[in-house]
Design a binder for these strands. Structure first.
Lengths: 331, 331
DNA sequence: CAAGTATACGCAAACGTTTGTGTTATTGTT
DNA sequence: AACAATAACACAAACGTTTGCGTATACTTG
């Protein structure tokens, strides 16, 4: 049997309540002499508090849940690192739950788990939650925030990059570097993110009076393979001079396939990625990207959940920037 | 206030115990008619069970904890995927805790969290636990297993690849392909893993009567930057014809730096990596690797923890294999 | 039909905390 | 010296479940 607060109380010759208050540092409730004694006894006995019992009694947990898609992209690590960065400072525990890839069953399971555990907050990362899961979460009253998924309509508060701006800026960059025929690879029109980015692309093209051949738009879903497949679609003599890929991995797929076709990047084809994770720096050529600050997204999201006040959480976009590397060139 | 089991009982006109038994599917304790009724009422009321209360009362949680280093290598995802694969099938929840990089404070915090929550098992991934954390874990009596870290001495049960074999096989492969001067990059002699791999390397060299120049051994710690730095150490005219890197990322660092020196891989230098994650397939040239089966390591580890029996967990090595790709050549 | 046995359910204790309130000893005020 | 105020602690209820045990009813069986 584990040693409980009762054992400590007995051994220290004080009441259970005193032990509880000492151990959870409720100031002004005990003499410092007693406190020292209690702490010593607890340590000697190897007391470990039972978080379940504590949470049950106090109705508040100190754990933050991160619900995340088992994403084939790779920025999640940075977001999680950001979350941990601030959670650790606040003394909160973080528990991560995978919700699969557009898998409603797994999503429900994950959401159910966090609700059952009555966590103090939920961070939903790179996931477009199904209606059912979303409803459970809403009615549970647990504070939550979407990270890296600007919410369609009033899904809830989010912290993300502006996907419309991402599409726009990438396109603008390429146009300003002389490109007129620009491909778009890996966007999923069904998803909010994909649609937004595509809108940004269209707007930038329109603004510069450039027309779009719908054949330049190759849908997909963030993966390396999507990039490869898209490049196969374009073929050995692509109709475009530049391609915007929906993730760093997708860009790599495009570049690899281009190389297999004997096409030089960027000499014969410029490729630009969205995300700007470390991959863009270790791959050769290094990849020009619209870079998102995932670490800060994680930090900001976590901080938003931890500000004790009861204000509704403010959604916001964090700045993005185009980082020029070696996979694009001036035409 | 959330709706509790009591509310359900009242609304369904049965006792709390019946509701409990119905909702947790304790067979042979209720009539199926009652069960249907109770379930319906519970659903109508939007009942969500309180996992804390349940765990507290039953003394058993259904959550598995994964304690993981915020590793700069990238195989963790695959291990986690494997863990989830079997955990999901068993209906267990998985919570992931980051323990930093050789950061005793964070380790203690993570271990403390899992003990406080009295989880049903702990999977320690790619982490050499400090003595203190290890002791807490051991005295807590919570079943645990080390993944991808063959334990020095009697740390506890593990499932991993045989690091000695990894070093040996990599070296053997290169020797069989005509290499005599083989560099070793990124091994940390202090760590058990690094030492083992190095031993394997030495043994393979010795077995083929090849002597080692200590200058070929460049220590490090799994990162891309370690690879770059090591290659800078070797310089533009490396004394070795082949290099074994301690991770895929490290290998990429080596190759990138080699390329910057104008050295062609594999024409002028063969590079081989350890791990065999997806990186080895998307990078160009594709990278010959000693491939570990991380997914299976995750699966096996999780399964070991979930076999209800009280047998002590058996440590074991999972097979590795050399996968030939395009970063090495016959000399 | 009596006696035994399932079956279906309820009662209440227990899990290990937190916390509002009650109690006693101590200090301060006039 | 009398009384109020405060400090330091203890008591006990509450949190929402699970589960051993008890009991009433229905079903067997010889």
């Amino acid at each position: 049997m584990r040693v409980t607060i009762k054992d400590v109380a007995q051994a220290a010759n004080v009441s259970v309540s005193t032990v509880s208050r000492v151990l959870s540092n409720k100031e002004n409730f005990f003499a410092s002499k007693t406190a020292d004694h209690v702490r010593k006894v607890a340590a000697d006995l190897g007391y470990q508090r039972n978080a379940y019992a504590a949470d049950l009694a106090s109705h508040q947990s100190d754990v933050l849940a991160v619900v995340i898609s088992a994403t084939k992209s790779n920025f999640a690590d940075e977001i999680i690192a950001g979350i941990h960065d601030v959670a650790t400072k606040h003394g909160n525990s973080v528990m991560i739950l995978y919700a699969g890839e557009n898998n409603p069953t797994l999503q429900d399971k994950a959401i159910k788990t966090v609700i059952e555990r009555d966590v103090m907050g939920v961070l939903i990362v790179a996931l477009e939650l199904g209606d059912e899961s979303l409803n459970s979460l809403k009615t549970s009253g647990i504070p939550h925030i979407f990270l890296s998924t600007a919410a369609k309509e009033n899904l809830g508060p989010f912290i993300a990059s502006d996907d419309h701006a991402i599409g726009y800026e990438a396109t603008k960059y390429l146009i300003e570097h002389g490109h007129r025929k620009i491909g778009l690879v890996g966007m999923d029109e069904q998803s909010f993110v994909g649609a937004q980015r595509m809108n940004g692309y269209r707007e930038a093209m329109a603004k510069h009076s450039l027309s779009i051949d719908e054949d330049w738009l190759v849908p997909g879903y963030f993966t390396f393979e999507d990039g490869e497949a898209a490049m196969q679609h374009f073929g050995k003599q692509p109709a475009v001079t530049a391609i915007i890929a929906n993730s760093d991995l997708t860009a790599i797929g495009v570049i690899d396939q281009a190389r297999d076709y004997g096409l030089e990047v960027p000499a014969q084809l410029s490729v630009m990625s969205i995300d700007g994770t470390k991959l863009t720096r270790i791959f050769r050529p290094t990849i020009t990207s619209v870079t998102q600050d995932f670490f800060q997204i994680g930090r900001a999201g976590c901080a938003a959940l931890l500000t004790g006040d009861n204000e509704p959480i403010q959604s916001k976009f964090l700045p993005i920037k185009v980082v020029e590397r070696n996979s694009t060139r001036q035409l």
